[in-house]
Design a protein around this nucleic acid. Sequence first.
DNA 1: TTGTAGGCGTTATCAC
DNA 2: GTGATAACGCCTACAA
Lengths: 341, 341
Amino acid sequence: MNIGEIAKRAGVSRSTVSYALTGKRPVSEQTKRRIQAVVDELGYRPNAAARALKEGRTRTIGLVIPPAAQRLTDMQLGFVASVVDAAAGADLDVLLSPSGGEHDRSFERVVSGRRVDGVILMEIRLEDDRVARLRQTGLPFVGIGRTGRPEEMSWVDIDYETLLAKCVHHLADLGHRRLALVNRNAELVAAGYGPGHRAQAGFTRAVAERGLDGVRVCCADDAQAGQACVEQLLAEHPELTAIATINEAAIPGMYRALAQSGRTVPRDFSIAGVAVRHWAENLHPPLTAADIPADEMGARAVELLIQRIADPTTTHNHLLIAPPISLRSTTGPAPGHRHAL
Amino acid sequence: MNIGEIAKRAGVSRSTVSYALTGKRPVSEQTKRRIQAVVDELGYRPNAAARALKEGRTRTIGLVIPPAAQRLTDMQLGFVASVVDAAAGADLDVLLSPSGGEHDRSFERVVSGRRVDGVILMEIRLEDDRVARLRQTGLPFVGIGRTGRPEEMSWVDIDYETLLAKCVHHLADLGHRRLALVNRNAELVAAGYGPGHRAQAGFTRAVAERGLDGVRVCCADDAQAGQACVEQLLAEHPELTAIATINEAAIPGMYRALAQSGRTVPRDFSIAGVAVRHWAENLHPPLTAADIPADEMGARAVELLIQRIADPTTTHNHLLIAPPISLRSTTGPAPGHRHAL
DNA sequence: TTGTAGGCGTTATCAC
DNA sequence: GTGATAACGCCTACAA
């Protein structure tokens, strides 16, 4: 079923059908109705490939996610969901590309086969080949996350540095003197994963400012690793009374390790983190955490991308998010600490 | 950058470039090298839209997921991940369409704009408008899940009926006499969600076969609802000693409600369910459950789809999966029951 | 071994 | 207000 067939049946030319459908030039009410009737009857929709070829745009955006093999965190899933939603709201389709490095086949297909009008990139490293490649092709793109030279691209990101500093200050205010930072998995951090490094920087800075003892560890992104990690932490540093973390996936395991060591949260031990609200609330006990507005971030990323697609020459936009910490049930006064009233 | 430009720079015709790249006709070693050099230098890749238009296929599959607003379960996420992975392995791109009903814009774009060569459908109802629409368009499709008339389509699905019956028999063997089925959310079940109905059927049948008392409830798909649901269940049926469930998302809440009622799992109360292994293992205590091989199911769905795209006239394929129940830490002898040895 | 040319389905420019 | 026609970039008979 193509536009020629519709034209024939409606007794008009192909261009008239096209204009009747797009409204880009006036068509008489009567012929418009006749055309619409045929279109409805045959269920005609313009062929996307032909249109893309002619118009030079695909009405599709690419969403580059971490390789599916490694399970996405709840926050990442939140980004994906909100990007897909926001795109649908703007009548854009989303092409998924699970790819890590630059030479990924799927990534190359998407960016250099001109399959999309723009790209949203997740899980960005401080040095990121994909960013380099995208800049090279000139394809509009927006990061959820940013590289080490953030002026050079458009992005929305979480201000992990500030957030972790806030966590430390909050814990320090409660009298905690010895804390640990539980980071994401070691490979990711070693590979220059921005949030890992920025969280570390914020933690280190705040710990120094408050004159505290801070220990920093990496931990694989799952509950079992979280449990093992905290067990080891408690063995090596029994004086610890609090943890700040950006590793959501590991938290349930941390809870277990603390419980099994005989520590009650938050009476004996405090935890503060960064997570999506829904998830923090559903945890037991509910986690004191900076609530990341994943929905909003995805939606804003799509907005920025649409804007860049419309005019690729505009200056870059940046949105750095540092939501307040929501007090829930995992932080309390340090054991033996008389809180100043 | 198009094929003509490459041809010009390599001093050959456009067709020679095309043949050199696709290998569909022999090209001399020398010209092939010359062409490849230019291609590499300019980073040329054929335009996907032009190729799709000419060839009549897009090398893309559509993946229809539940609207992003409603959070996907871990199992559904497993399906998405494995479909995306398997598709990438076959050099296919994946276009995501978050849509529930037939008249969804995104769904219509994908199926009638010929944006994809085939579709994988998730969260299928016994009566499903999207299935009707897809059959009407003639676009190849495969369900992860099936309708009430499963002969009419290709699918991979979980045999919830058998699985729930198995759960009941397992619990009955342990001496439990009064059990509850905790289903997915009421709207979904009311809308004719297949797994909900089939689980109910299997539960009801097995309960009758063993002469047990069975109560059946629906529960929203989150931990808080799970907690509330079990609290109410225990209040209204204090004699219950076991639950069988297909509602993974609610399980953490069920654990909490049981703990707060003073019941220890599995000493005082047993739970058996259906879940992805990774998730069941990570739960605390680890869940006795039928381990759904989400990776395999997604991969098989892609395989079936590729096959149907290659030859849409082949007879339909069906894969009904009923994995064994893996004994973990949530089922034990009914309280006061002397197990026959 | 290579080149020429037509057409996939659309939109947009030109003419009427 | 409407129609003819030329592209968009690619693939693939058909010719040489």
